[in-house]
Amino acid sequence: MSVDINNRYGLNPAHSEVIEACNAIKPCKALDMGCSNGRNALYLSQLGFDVTAVDNNPDAINMLRQIASEENLDNIDARIYDINDAKLTDEYGLIACTVTLMFVNPANVDEVIKNMQSHTQPGGYNLIVCAMDTTEYPCPVPFPFTFQTGQLRSAYEEWELLKYNEDVGTMHNGATLQFATMLARKPAE
C-alpha cells in the first residue's frame, strides 16, 4: 500500500503507531500534525481517511502536494501551519502527532495539546508519540521539548487510554531514548 508510494518517493514507511492505530480506527477526517513529507498522510489517505496534513516547512508541504497530485490522491489537503500557534479550526476524528511535539516551543506544548483535544470530535482519537527526558534515560538529542514521566498521561486523564507506555525506543538515526506513546479516545458526549 503506502509502502510502495513512500518507497517510490524516497520516504520512510508510515510510523508503526499510525499503522497499529488504523487497526482500531475506521476511516474518518484525520489530521497529521507535523507531517513532514507526508509518510503518515499518504498511508492514511490510501486507507480512505480524509487527511489534512500540516507542517511549517513549505518545501515538505510542496513535496506532499506534488506526490498527492501525481498519485491522484484527492483526499489529502496539505497546508503550511505552525503547530506552535495552536489555532486549529476544524474538527477531526483522528489527530496523529508522531515525533512532532519535541520540536514545539516548550511554552506552547500545553496549549497545543488542549487545542488538539478541543478539535477532536467526541469519540475521536489522539495519537501522540514524543521523546522523553527522564533520570533513567536522559534524552541524548537536544530537542526543545521532551515529556517527563507521566506528563502525557496526566494531560489525557479525562480520556480513555487505549494504549499508553513510556518505553525505550530507537529513532531512525539510531539514537536510543524513552518515548511517551499514547492512543486515547475522547469521551462521547
Rank of each mutant, 00 (worst) to 15 (best):
D90T: 09
E91A: 08
V104W: 04
D133K: 03
P58D: 12
E136V: 03
S69N: 12
N108K: 15
F143P: 00
D59T: 09
D77G: 01
R65S: 15
I76E: 10
A107N: 10
D133A: 09
E111G: 04
K114A: 13
D74Y: 14
M132P: 14
F143S: 00
V141D: 04
L73K: 02
K87P: 00
T135P: 02
C97M: 08
D77A: 12
L88Y: 02
L64W: 03
S69M: 07
G150T: 12
E111I: 03
V109Q: 08
Q117D: 06
Y125A: 00
K87Q: 14
M63I: 07
P142M: 05
L94A: 09
C139S: 12
N72R: 15
A78Q: 04
D110W: 01
I76D: 01
Y81R: 09
D133S: 13
N108L: 08
P106R: 04
C97D: 00
S118L: 11
D85H: 05
M116V: 14
P138T: 06
P140E: 04
I95L: 05
L101Y: 11
I83D: 04
D74E: 12
E70T: 03
H119N: 13
D110A: 14
E111S: 13
L73G: 04
N72W: 07
Q148M: 08
P140I: 08
K87A: 10
V141A: 07
D133H: 15
N72M: 10
T89M: 10
D90P: 02
A68N: 00
I67L: 10
T146S: 15
C130N: 11
V104P: 04
Q117Y: 11
I80S: 04
V99T: 07
A78F: 14
A131E: 05
V109N: 02
N75M: 05
Q66P: 00
P144T: 05
A78M: 06
S69G: 03
N115E: 12
T98M: 07
F147N: 03
F145K: 05
M102N: 11
A131F: 11
N75C: 07
A107P: 00
D77E: 11
F145P: 10
D85M: 06
L73R: 07
T98I: 14
N84D: 13
Q121M: 10
Y137F: 12
N84F: 01
P140N: 05
N57S: 12
A86W: 02
C97Q: 05
R79G: 01
T135E: 14
F103I: 02
Y81V: 03
I76M: 08
D59R: 09
N75R: 02
Y81N: 12
V129G: 00
R79C: 09
I83R: 00
Q117K: 15
A68D: 02
N57M: 08
V99K: 07
I128V: 15
R65W: 01
